[in-house]
């Protein structure tokens, strides 16, 4: 296998405990080069511990970790320039402007100020370059944090909840930026609580709970395998729950908030059967989402 085909990150049976708490329990994951990989899970599931072990900031108790074919810990000076890490808190040099901050970060990698300019441009912050880091808006802070992560053009990028606390428009812009990163071939590992976003952005996701990998696959595959199927929502009164239960392809019927909800793995067949019984324009089709899969796995009550 040539280096370019070898995986970017390999975790082999990685475990880590803090006292009684298992932060990572026999985690094995292989992340390919150029892959957009999502780590999902509730708070305390072990996402941050896992990422910090991959970054070399923490040592696993057992198991091995390889990043770009190298061991990340102890502090590996050959590896560090090839990875970029965005921290959860936005870390900026005190009382500097956005541009000065990036020039300083670039210098940490031995790079000239021009690289900082490129990073500013990449995240669309050129016009705000002379604004103090304390005065820029939330969305711009997040962009600046990502620019700090990308200033040295790393091959593997770690983003910890990059879209948390952003308004919808800023989230959409950032989502586009992340797609662009993937398009230029970066390997991206990111954590998020926005499952809709993970579903559209990620090639594959791992769902973690209590340090264990509960599921690991592409969102599409996870949804298909879950058997949750599609939900068809019909205004109540158009047909009775009993009638609905007899329709071809319907697996389950429920009444929620005055609406009749049909569960099916074959939406088209059910819709055909419904034709005539109810006005199809009133029927809302809701395909299963990654969020449905996630909630079923994590065990939260389903919405």
């Amino acid at each position: 296998m040539s280096p370019i085909d070898s995986p970017a990150i390999v975790l082999d049976a990685v475990s880590k405990s803090y006292g009684e708490v298992r932060a990572a329990d026999e985690v094995s994951i292989s992340i390919g080069r150029g892959e957009f990989f999502g780590l999902l899970g509730p708070n305390g599931a072990g996402k941050t511990t896992l990422i910090e072990m991959i970054e070399g900031l923490r040592l696993p108790d057992t198991g091995t970790i390889t990043v770009l074919g190298m061991a990340p810990a102890p502090r590996n000076l050959d590896l560090l320039p090839r990875i970029g890490v965005q921290t959860q808190r936005s870390a900026f040099f005190t009382r500097l402007t956005a541009r000065e901050h990036l020039v300083t970060v670039a210098a940490l990698y031995g790079l000239p100020p021009a690289t900082a300019e490129k990073a500013l441009d990449l995240v669309g912050l050129t016009d705000s370059g002379n604004v103090r880091v304390t005065r820029i808006s939330g969305g711009q802070r997040q962009r600046l944090a990502i620019a700090s992560t990308l200033v040295h053009d790393p091959e593997v990028v770690f983003l910890d909840e990059p879209t948390a606390a952003l308004d919808p428009e800023a989230r959409r812009d950032l989502g586009q930026m992340l797609r662009n990163l993937k398009a230029i071939g970066k390997t991206i590992v990111y954590t998020t609580h926005h499952l809709d976003e993970a579903q559209t952005l990620c090639d594959r996701v791992a769902i973690l709970s209590a340090g264990r990998v509960l599921a690991l696959d592409s969102p599409r595959e996870l949804i298909a395998r879950s058997g949750i199927g599609t939900r068809l929502v019909i205004p109540a009164g158009r047909l009775s729950p009993e009638q609905a239960g007899t329709l071809d392809g319907v697996n389950g019927v429920a009444v929620e908030d005055g609406m009749l909800v049909l569960r099916t793995a074959h939406a088209a067949r059910v819709l055909a059967a419904l034709d005539g019984a109810a006005d199809l324009d009133d029927v809302e089709t809701r395909p299963a989402t990654l969020e449905d899969v996630y909630l079923e796995l994590i065990g939260a009550p389903q919405a």
Binding site: L77, I83, V85, R89, F93, T94, L108
Partner: peptide
């Protein structure tokens, strides 16, 4: 102040993750 601030703001982490 600098040391406390840089540690609190995760700047020390950024430095540690760079080759500096």
């Amino acid at each position: 102040f600098t040391l406390m601030q840089w540690r609190n703001d995760d700047l020390l982490r950024i430095i540690r993750l760079s080759p500096t």
